[in-house]
């Protein structure tokens, strides 16, 4: 067998488009929902195979940022925070998607605590790293959702596969970091 989720998704979208939608022209509510299902299937066909790589990249970026933050400002890290950034990361390739996603959600909650409770001093090297982190996250999000029709200038946004490839090849700590005006 050659497992191919994308093929199934594309076949469903085709059947809906060519067979089901024409039968719904006088049923506006059902037609609207069916059109949304088709659009969702097309989006999934582009992104679904990259879900694990997406979450893995979120994990790598977030851990990288948290570790750098602790090294630069150890006084600002709470005990729980110190525990997680010093804990061995283990072989994340063997973690299931759900487990890894849960870890990322927990790490992002810690990042919020740090941002709220341990404001960065002026000139901190973490400030530009944080903004690189944000820009990489936004690049992933807008690429993932570029087919929704809600993302500005979506035609200029690369596919999620390309964004993830590029980010994997240039880890967060190796990127050039943008400048950002100081907080006031």
């Amino acid at each position: 067998m050659k497992p191919d989720v994308k093929q199934h998704l594309q076949s469903m979208a085709k059947a809906l488009n060519e067979i089901v939608l024409p039968e719904l022209q006088d049923k506006p509510f059902a037609l609207e929902q069916a059109n949304l299902v088709v659009a969702s299937l097309n989006l999934l066909a582009e992104v679904q195979e990259h879900q694990f790589a997406y979450v893995r990249q979120e994990f790598d970026d977030t851990r990288s940022l948290l570790a750098a933050w602790r090294l630069a400002h150890p006084e600002g890290a709470d005990p729980a925070m110190q525990q997680i950034v010093t804990a061995p990361q283990g072989d994340t390739d063997t973690q299931g998607l759900g487990e890894l996603a849960k870890t990322v959600t927990g790490d992002k909650a810690r990042l919020r605590i740090l941002m709220d409770k341990a404001p960065l001093p002026t000139g901190s090297p973490i400030e530009p790293l944080l903004h690189s982190y944000i820009e990489r996250q936004l690049a992933r999000e807008t690429a993932w959702l570029r087919l929704t029709g809600f993302i500005p200038d979506a035609s200029a946004i690369p596919a999620i596969a390309n964004v993830l490839d590029s980010q994997k090849n240039t880890p967060l700590h190796t990127t050039d970091h943008p400048t950002y005006p100081p907080h006031q």
Partner: peptide
């Protein structure tokens, strides 16, 4: 289905929000 799909609206807004904060807001 619409709720899932229109998360694009939210993430588009997040990108705009960041640009405003970055270029002038802060």
């Amino acid at each position: 289905v619409m709720m899932n799909f229109s998360t694009g609206l939210g993430y588009g807004a997040l990108a705009c929000l960041y640009q405003i904060l970055k270029t002038g807001g802060a």
